[in-house]
Amino acid sequence: MTSVLTQLVARSLLAPALVVAAGILVKGYSDVGDGFAAAIVAALGILLQFLAFGRAQVAAVLPIRRAPLVALCGLGLAVTVFAVPLAVGAAPLEHWPPAAQSPVHVGSLELITAVAFDVGVFLLVLGSAVAIIDALAATAEDEA
């Protein structure tokens, strides 16, 4: 199957990929990148694991079976951010804090509802991508 070298590269790239994804995600509002890009980076990292180790081994290490659930949670989060302003009488997807108010900081991280929306996008794209990769891998294994 795949060589030891491939496996070594794949394994050592997973953590950096996930960290970079997290970084892109949380800094997305003030720096390059957004939820979509972050999700693709993370998904590529996971795809590499599939290529190097095969589906069964990846499933033993990573919770890939939960990918559809992750996707649904992401959609749920995005819809929540969309819908909550309705309940308080604002326009849908109106973000908090409003323009005049400065956001709350945690360290250098700014808490804005738009970031929560972006996290929803991240979860949905990541979950969908991994679910599709998993389904394709299963099909390929069956045919092999």
């Binding site: 997305g28 509002y29 003030s30 720096d31 957004d34 973000h95 804090p97 700014e110 738009a114």
Partner: peptide, 8 residues
């Protein structure tokens, strides 16, 4: 909108 990355 408190953002510096206009694309996002």
């Amino acid at each position: 909108a408190h953002g510096k990355d206009v694309v996002t």
